[in-house]
Write a protein that binds this DNA or RNA. Structure first.
Lengths: 194, 194
DNA sequence: CCCCCCTCTTAATATAGTTTAAGATAATTT
DNA sequence: AAATTATCTTAAACTATATTAAGAGGGGGG
């Protein structure tokens, strides 16, 4: 039952009957995305969202100068898509690819909307996780407006102790919004102080 | 019927029966917030959210050096609160105050949760507007990571043509994440080029 | 096994944005 | 209307971060 992890995730926030579980399972599609392969390319329409069972995806944009900026890491139990495209049906501006071999459950917007209309507990689930995603994006935005690169790096270490030693540094730099060279410099100072 | 504007806003996205409208109206409280008065102070618990009928509120944080950073302007038809505190019940980190005399409808988290359980169309409404808020926060974050202050200013002019001539510039500077002095410099260059 | 590519580091130089300070305008209060 | 306070502008000096360049170390593919 590959959908088990997602069903548990939903049942942490609400209740589901056996029949409802079945309906949800029926629309999910399990998929493997190998390292460096893409779930979504910019300019495509994001018709689906992905729930990560194992591995890690990331979403990022590429600016007019060719630099990548990471919006989100999606390890186990996280959803990821280009939300803008997913809800509007317009071209995505994000790319989503795999940092390591990754197993996901695929849910289309169409199925999501249809099921939310039938299963009000599912609509509740998506409202609540969207609220949480909003909060964490807001906090990240405020951090970017009010703290230095160094403070953001230290915060990242605290928030994602699991990722700090597995991810290449250039990805961390891209996430906290600085160049890899500058991150290296910060880390250098950091080490020398201890 | 002070709730009319909010009910219209909801009915743009979904359908409500007359009875459901009544239930919603019953829990809303109309309130006037005068210029410079606060709806919420940091360190309080945000037990309510506000829907703006007329006027304009803003939410902002104060960093450790005493500088303000504006997260959101809330003109007519926008919701505002400290979402982090609202959903977690923990201390807020945002302040919400009025930029001009403002009329709002107040909805408590308790009433929201209770009504969403009874009126699935309302849960749908909140899911959809939360998704939209998430998208716009994500895009603002990506803009902050990938564009210059000047590009952000130009984008702000395009996105909020209504606010650009009513808001004091120091507020715009705070929103786009720069000092008022630097915004003034950008505007100076801008004018000289035309 | 070696080569090549990719990542990380270091350092010099360049730039976007801040800080400080002062004067000029505009808006409130008295 | 005067007095006071807040906002806007300008400019010089400063700082955080970017850019460029070059070299060192590692891991995967042929």
């Amino acid at each position: 039952m590959p959908a088990g992890k997602l069903l548990s995730h939903i049942k942490n926030l609400t209740l589901l009957s056996a029949d409802e579980e079945k309906q949800i399972e029926d629309v999910l599609e399990k998929k493997t995305i190998r390292k460096r392969q893409f779930l979504l390319h910019e300019h495509q329409i994001a018709k689906v969202a992905a729930f990560v069972i194992s591995g890690c995806l990331r979403s990022y944009s590429i600016d007019r100068n060719g630099f990548e900026h990471i919006l989100q890491f999606a390890p186990e139990n996280w959803w990821v898509t280009d939300m803008y495209s997913f809800i509007s049906g317009k071209e995505s501006y994000l790319n989503v690819d795999a940092l390591v071999d990754t197993e996901v459950l695929i849910l289309s917007r169409e199925d999501q909307q249809h099921l939310c209309g039938k299963i009000s507990q599912l609509e509740h689930y998506f409202r609540v996780i969207t609220e949480k995603a909003l909060v964490s994006t807001q906090q990240r935005l405020m951090d970017n407006l009010s703290t230095t690169a160094r403070q953001r790096y230290e915060k990242f270490c605290g928030t994602y102790p699991g990722l700090i030693n597995t991810l290449p540094q250039k990805l961390i730099a891209s996430y906290i919004g600085i160049t890899p060279e500058f991150l290296s410099k910060i880390r250098g100072e950091f080490l020398r102080e201890n």
